[in-house]
Design a protein around this nucleic acid. Structure first.
Lengths: 343, 343
DNA sequence: CTGAAAGCGCTAACAA
DNA sequence: TTGTTAGCGCTTTCAG
């Protein structure tokens, strides 16, 4: 069996209280006894049980992270950042894939609560806000990332989605594009709707009728985006640009464009969102609205840890600015026409 | 404060033993009391503390997963599979990013031990095998995935790397390629060396001198693979094909090839390894040796859970077959020549 | 500086 | 069928 504090105490001929003190170096203990205890702990490969100490009111040093799908690069990169930041403060992180399924979402919440994690980061929308309210009675520190939930009072880190949508669209409109496809997944969260608002705002500002915009929905997979886009291109050949709400969708659109004989960016400009590593892998490299993923992860995690530690009286919301990274999937419409006639 | 078993007992006017029994539905309890207790538990949002029950010898229902980097698609997909499988049996998973750093590796191992996780999946090499041996004295169930370690006796799931290397190379040799670049990262694990053996085996079998092969190393990042490959192509223009040990490296090579004016697959054929989702995103879609990632995750996790549950007396090793997925980055050397002359 | 003892929330005999 | 009680391994007063 694993040695316990009693084993150490016995071998060192001291009381368990003394051992406990050297473990947490608290109180005053003679240097000699301290060394002796330390030596024995080492000799027996002793490790204090987090389980036992948690029972006495101490932390579990574990936080939970809910995301829709860790296999999705955006969340994988976010998770990496969260874990790194947690690790730096001796926290472990438990990952939970919710698939945006409301039942899984709250199930995980309660599971984590039962395990007495010290805090939870929500990187996923919580569809069932009533259930969330209920859960919050448990008073587990919570923090939100990349998803807004103005109805509840929690620490939050997000990107200015409205602005991201605006910048991307402005980039396209300025290049002369009029008929732009707005490619979105389910459109079931605040990020999507905010980006759409920014999208329309740019239209208004450029004096272009919102009628010119075409909204394309899909089930948020690359394959489906490709199909929807192909469809859209058929129905409406006047489309010369697309703004996709994440890099995956954008790549699906590029594929659809190529298959439809459109050169990118010659005949079709594409802007994505997120700037995960796939944006640079794409051919051509994808112009996209970059979210500072690593920083977002770092910030939420730090906020959560601070709150766990009892700092942070009032809840805070940090809004980061997205940044348009212009690469090679966007071109001016003039250029496009020249290309077309020239060939 | 959160309600405890005492609160429930008091309100229900029964003893804590009774409450405990209904929680775990053990022993015999009258249907009436059972209902009453259940109702109260529900009313108070009571959740038994895993921490407390773990202290009495029960499981924590948590497993650890060590990987080099969750942001790497291969491991992200693996993690997803592990988490799904764990979830189905009510286990949560703690992720640990080791960066292949020996110190982080064992640190995580001990952390997890201290938290009394029920088992650990190693999806990363453990460089320090002496430290591992030491750790194993703790008798925490361990399982290995995607990495061989014949020196220690643990359940293992892996892919036949030798065969994967052989198949990929054979595909290229059969197509007429002779001078093939073998692009690898650090070459610090058994997978890499096994694949290399398979690579050479194919050379031998085709009666081609091993001298024709050129080994290209890099620091296992896409950018570095690109640089190394560019270099290699300059030094040795006779290279007509590359076998890269993962899809990232393969994409780096495609980029290098394109920049060097080589058409893919016209002037340069590329085969990757893993078949993560980026293989299909690539342009052109990447020919690659597919590892059954999801199945690997499912299998290790299930093995580990079985062992935790006390089944699985003897340790097992499951070897899965990789499968060459031929897509569009490989072409015959003849074809390539025709292309060149024809243009 | 060191130790005795109570208690954290739950499980599991063992009684009743 | 239900309750009493002794731990699980550790922290934390409070005495010495």
């Amino acid at each position: 069996m694993r040695p316990t504090i009693y084993d150490i105490a016995e071998r060192a001929e001291v009381s368990i209280a003394t051992v406990s003190k050297v473990i947490n170096n608290k109180g005053k203990i003679g240097e000699k006894t301290r060394q002796r205890v330390l030596a024995i702990m080492d000799e027996l490969d002793y490790q204090p049980s987090t389980v036992a100490s948690a029972l006495t009111g101490k932390q579990t040093n574990t936080i939970g992270l809910l995301v829709p799908d860790i296999a999705n690069s955006f969340f994988a990169e976010l998770a990496r950042s969260v874990e790194d930041t947690g690790h730096a403060s001796s926290f472990n992180v438990v990952i939970c894939n919710t698939d945006n399924n409301p039942e899984k979402e709250i199930q995980y919440l309660w599971w984590l609560n039962q395990k007495r994690v010290d805090g939870i980061i929500l990187g996923t929308g919580i569809q069932n806000s009533k259930a969330l309210q209920d859960f919050m009675k448990q008073k587990i520190p919570l923090a939100l990332v990349a998803r807004d939930a103005s109805t509840i009072d929690v620490d939050t880190v997000l990107v200015d989605d409205y602005r991201g949508g605006y910048e991307a669209t402005k980039h396209l409109l300025t290049a002369g594009h009029i008929r732009i496809a707005f490619v979105v997944g389910e459109m079931n969260n605040s990020s999507d709707t905010e980006r759409l608002k920014g999208f329309y705002e740019a239209y208004d500002e450029h004096g272009v009728s919102r009628e010119e915009a075409v909204i394309v929905k899909d089930n948020n997979s690359i394959g489906d985006a490709k199909n929807s886009m192909r469809q859209a291109l058929q129905n409406d050949p006047a489309i010369t640009a697309v703004f996709a709400l994440n890099d995956f969708l954008a790549i699906g659109c590029i594929q659809a464009g190529k298959e439809a004989g459109r050169r990118v960016p010659g005949d079709l400009s594409v802007v994505g969102f997120d700037d995960t590593f796939i944006a640079t892998l794409s051919d051509p490299p994808l112009t996209t609205v970059a979210q500072p993923i690593l920083e977002m992860g770092r910030l939420v995690t730090q906020m959560l840890i601070d709150r766990i530690g009892g700092k942070n009286e009032t809840t805070r919301t940090i809004i980061l600015n997205p940044e348009l990274h212009v690469r090679e999937t966007t071109a001016g419409i003039k250029e496009a026409e020249r290309d077309v006639t020239g060939s």
